[in-house]
Amino acid sequence: MLARHTAPAEGPSSASAHTGTSCPVEAIAAAYLSQTSGDPALALRCAITDALADLLEAERRTRERSRLISRGYVRGRLDDTGDAL
């Protein structure tokens, strides 16, 4: 697998130079193609691998936040008399 979060390819061959805009999708595609020496199949596999890794990390963080929120809710609950524990 290649390094993640690579910078977009620079120079006249970059996608943004062709379009005159800075479309993030084109910049990311150009970066992956640059890192894979122009191999589109490998660039696609690397992009998918990175996207799935990011998705799994986001899901892990969401579960962790949910667990911490649940724990905080239980610690802050009220007893039968209405006083905090």
Rank of each mutant, 00 (worst) to 15 (best):
residue 1 M to T: 04
residue 1 M to L: 13
residue 1 M to H: 05
residue 2 L to T: 01
residue 2 L to G: 03
residue 3 A to M: 08
residue 3 A to D: 11
residue 3 A to I: 08
residue 3 A to P: 11
residue 4 R to C: 04
residue 6 T to G: 13
residue 7 A to K: 11
residue 8 P to S: 02
residue 8 P to M: 00
residue 10 E to S: 12
residue 10 E to A: 13
residue 11 G to A: 04
residue 12 P to E: 10
residue 14 S to R: 13
residue 15 A to R: 06
residue 16 S to Y: 12
residue 18 H to M: 10
residue 20 G to H: 00
residue 20 G to Q: 00
residue 22 S to P: 00
residue 22 S to F: 11
residue 23 C to D: 15
residue 23 C to A: 12
residue 24 P to C: 01
residue 25 V to W: 09
residue 25 V to Y: 10
residue 27 A to Q: 14
residue 28 I to N: 04
residue 29 A to T: 13
residue 29 A to N: 11
residue 30 A to E: 05
residue 30 A to I: 06
residue 30 A to W: 00
residue 33 L to C: 01
residue 33 L to D: 02
residue 35 Q to G: 11
residue 35 Q to E: 12
residue 36 T to D: 12
residue 36 T to F: 05
residue 37 S to I: 06
residue 38 G to V: 04
residue 38 G to C: 07
residue 38 G to S: 08
residue 38 G to E: 07
residue 40 P to K: 08
residue 40 P to N: 07
residue 41 A to E: 11
residue 41 A to P: 00
residue 42 L to H: 11
residue 43 A to Q: 06
residue 43 A to E: 09
residue 44 L to W: 10
residue 44 L to M: 13
residue 44 L to G: 07
residue 45 R to P: 05
residue 46 C to Q: 11
residue 46 C to G: 03
residue 47 A to R: 03
residue 48 I to Y: 10
residue 48 I to P: 00
residue 48 I to E: 08
residue 49 T to E: 15
residue 49 T to P: 00
residue 50 D to K: 02
residue 50 D to R: 02
residue 50 D to C: 00
residue 51 A to L: 15
residue 51 A to T: 14
residue 52 L to R: 15
residue 53 A to I: 04
residue 55 L to A: 09
residue 56 L to P: 00
residue 57 E to Q: 12
residue 57 E to N: 12
residue 57 E to T: 11
residue 58 A to I: 09
residue 58 A to L: 14
residue 59 E to Y: 05
residue 60 R to P: 01
residue 61 R to H: 06
residue 62 T to E: 12
residue 63 R to F: 08
residue 64 E to T: 14
residue 68 L to R: 15
residue 68 L to A: 14
residue 69 I to E: 13
residue 69 I to Q: 14
residue 69 I to K: 11
residue 70 S to F: 04
residue 70 S to W: 04
residue 73 Y to W: 10
residue 73 Y to M: 13
residue 73 Y to N: 14
residue 73 Y to R: 14
residue 76 G to K: 13
residue 77 R to Y: 01
residue 78 L to F: 09
residue 78 L to E: 03
residue 79 D to Y: 06
residue 80 D to P: 02
residue 80 D to L: 05
residue 81 T to L: 02
residue 82 G to T: 06
residue 82 G to A: 02
residue 83 D to Y: 08
residue 83 D to F: 08
residue 83 D to V: 07
residue 85 L to C: 11
residue 85 L to H: 13
residue 85 L to D: 07
residue 85 L to R: 12
residue 85 L to E: 10
